[in-house]
Simulated assay, not measured.
Amino acid sequence: MGINEPLNRKLRMALVGGGQGSFIGRVHSIAACLDNRAVLTAGALSSNPERAKSSAPDYGIEDSRAYTSYQELIESELALPEDQRIDFVSIATPNHVHFEVAQAAVKAGFNVVCDKPMTYDLAQAEQLLETVQNSDVVFALSHNYTGYPLVRQARAMVLAGELGEINAIRSRYIQGWLRDSIESDDQKQAAWRTDPTKSGAAGAFGDIGTHAYNLGRFMTGLLPEQISCHLKTYVPGRRLDDYGTAVIRYENGALGTVTASQISHGRHCGLEIEIDGTKGSLTWHQENPNEMSFRRNGKAHQILVPPPEPEYQDRMGAGVCRLPAGHPEAFFEAFANIYIGAFDDMVKRAAGQPFDGRDSIYTNCYDGVEGMYFIQQCVASSGQDAAWVPLRHEAARR
């Protein structure tokens, strides 16, 4: 079988952002190319033209395709013959730049993989969704934790009714890297994430709380109705929240909690989720991603591992495993699973075949609007002393 059959070639990738000092840009490039289905061909790696050019050799991008702005990238790539120009743009910039790059790329007819949160605010997200709906492009959002095999397996088990009716979701993402005011020392990642002009209306809740919320939505499919949220800023002088907790009421009567912290000593990437149903409960921890506990009263507790045992063999879990049992798969592989889902649809689009950009296994533009609505409503609720506010957006998908 050829690569990306029936195209029989690699998809050509452009990276916007990801210049020297970036973490997530390198992750995008590795994840996209992990399965040999894409090649990084072009880039506009920094808003600083000199840094954009000097960063290109780090990625193996030829000087002729190392652009000094995303505008130059799009214009120059459109001028190339179709068999040479890029297929998709990956966006790995600070939040306030996502919209303008994504909007331009979609209007130019390029597929997009965008880092989360999708835009700076909800108005931009809704406008971008309208642009995507009026196009035929593939749009994927890198909520990468939904790519872990056991997260996919949990979703399959929940949707198959193995947990019964879902009563409760407890998700949290606990970090400690912003315990001190390192943004005051111009630490690059901290500086923009704590700057409301670049990050948006929320800090920790916008950065990692969105992951915890999205994970519950993905694994259960439950639609939210209302949210009550408290956001706090503990580090003196910081302009955005560094801790927060929220309670969510779901459509079926279930309750959910989301907690996000970036000020907890010694914590790194403590994304955890527990789901309680009438027939059983699941627990998964991102820092130990290759084990998931499944508990039922009166029965022995089970530890599921990827690829799942035959009793739980399901394409949603086993289909995204690359290695035999006992060989741990983790962050890069999960991130790559977002890409391979998007690649499947990009290939269909290029071959003139239909694809479903709304009900996709990868997080999409509709999910991105939900995420921005979540941020907006958390900030609104917290500003009203944790008053209950609506959380169901019309873009929500089951």
Rank of each mutant, 00 (worst) to 15 (best):
W177T: 15
V138Y: 04
N111M: 08
V101A: 00
L141S: 14
A79T: 08
P149Q: 08
D195L: 05
T93E: 00
G147V: 06
L73I: 15
G176K: 08
V89W: 06
T93W: 05
T146L: 13
Q84A: 15
W192P: 02
M118K: 09
I169W: 02
T146A: 12
E130P: 11
N111P: 04
F139L: 10
A105T: 02
Q187C: 15
E126D: 00
S181Y: 03
A154T: 13
D87I: 06
V151G: 02
E75I: 07
L129F: 03
Q153F: 14
L78W: 06
R170C: 12
M157C: 04
G161F: 13
R152M: 09
F99K: 05
D136L: 07
F88P: 01
S142L: 12
V101H: 01
Q153G: 15
H98E: 11
A125Y: 07
E77A: 09
D180F: 09
H96Q: 14
R152G: 11
E75L: 03
D185R: 08
C114G: 12
E75Y: 04
A108W: 12
T119Q: 06
A190Q: 10
I169T: 04
L129K: 04
L128N: 03
A123F: 11
T131F: 08
N167H: 10
T131V: 15
I74H: 04
L80E: 08
E126P: 00
P94H: 07
V106I: 07
R179S: 12
W177F: 12
G164P: 05
E183H: 02
V138L: 10
H96R: 11
R155S: 00
R172T: 03
Q124N: 08
Y173E: 15
E183Q: 09
D115C: 05
H96Y: 11
Y120R: 13
E72D: 05
H98W: 07
D185L: 09
D195F: 03
E75R: 09
E82F: 00
Q124G: 08
F88K: 00
A104R: 04
P81Q: 14
G147T: 06
E130V: 14
S184F: 10
G176H: 06
M118F: 13
Q175L: 10
Q153H: 15
H96K: 13
Y173S: 15
A140S: 15
S90L: 12
S171R: 05
A102N: 04
R179I: 11
D115H: 05
F99W: 12
G164S: 04
Q71M: 14
